[in-house]
Amino acid sequence: ENVVSAPMPGKVLRVLVRVGDRVRVGQGLLVLEAMKMENEIPSPRDGVVKRILVKEGEIVDTGQPLIELG
């Protein structure tokens, strides 16, 4: 699984990683606000951040690609 998608609609509050960062399974990639709750979106696997597909403040839909892992 190379693309991390939004599990719910919401607003991207914070991106916690940068392109080139090594991440571990379960590590927070970004914080999504949904229904006034902050939800940290975890990495599904170990890898390297290849691309960040959203910006802070952006509104996303369920299933929208957020981050690509390499």
Rank of each mutant, 00 (worst) to 15 (best):
V19N: 10
A6L: 03
D21S: 10
K36W: 09
L29M: 09
S43R: 15
V12F: 08
E38N: 11
T62C: 14
L30S: 13
G57S: 05
P42L: 08
V19C: 14
G20P: 04
A34G: 10
P65T: 09
A34I: 12
I67Y: 01
K36R: 05
G47Q: 03
M8A: 02
P7Y: 03
V49N: 03
G70S: 11
G10V: 02
L30F: 13
G28H: 05
L66N: 02
P9N: 08
P9Q: 11
L30E: 14
I41P: 08
G26Y: 00
V31P: 15
E56F: 03
E1I: 15
V4Y: 06
G20I: 05
V54N: 06
G10T: 03
P65Q: 00
S5H: 01
V23R: 07
L53P: 03
L13I: 13
P9Y: 03
N2H: 03
V31E: 03
V31K: 07
Q64A: 08
S43F: 06
N2C: 15
M37P: 02
E1T: 14
L29W: 03
A34N: 02
E58F: 09
V19F: 03
D21W: 14
G26K: 05
Q64D: 12
V3W: 00
M37I: 06
D21N: 08
K36F: 08
P65Y: 03
P42M: 11
I41R: 07
A34L: 09
G26L: 08
V12P: 15
P65R: 14
I59L: 04
L69D: 04
E68R: 15
V15I: 09
G47I: 09
V23A: 08
L66H: 15
I41N: 03
R14L: 02
V17Y: 01
V31Y: 08
S5P: 02
N39F: 12
V48L: 09
L13Y: 04
L53V: 11
G63K: 04
V17P: 00
R14F: 08
V3G: 12
K55E: 04
G10Y: 01
R22A: 03
E40M: 12
V23Q: 10
E1R: 15
G10K: 11
V15A: 04
V3P: 09
E33F: 02
G28C: 14
M37T: 04
D46N: 07
V23Y: 03
G28D: 08
K55L: 01
V15K: 07
R22C: 13
G26D: 05
V49L: 00
I41S: 07
L30D: 15
V54Y: 08
K55S: 02
V17I: 01
V12Y: 13
R18M: 13
K36C: 08
Q27H: 03
G63F: 08
V4P: 09
P44N: 04
K11Q: 08
K36Q: 04
A6P: 00
M35F: 00
L29I: 04
G70W: 02
L69F: 09
G57N: 02
L13N: 10
D46P: 03
K11R: 05
L30K: 15
G70Y: 06
G57P: 06
V17Q: 01
L69A: 01
P7A: 01
E38C: 14
P7I: 06
I59K: 01
E40A: 01
G57A: 12
R24N: 04
A6Q: 09
V48S: 12
L13P: 10
E56C: 14
K50M: 05
V23M: 00
K55I: 03
K11Y: 01
V60L: 11
I41Y: 00
I67L: 00
P9V: 07
P42T: 03
G20Q: 03
L69N: 03
V25N: 11
N2E: 03
E58Y: 13
V23L: 11
V3F: 10
A34R: 10
L66P: 15
P9A: 09
G26R: 09
V31F: 11
K50T: 12
L13V: 03
G47V: 13
V15D: 07
N39D: 05
V3D: 01
D61W: 03
V4T: 12
V17M: 04
V3L: 04
L29T: 05
R14C: 14
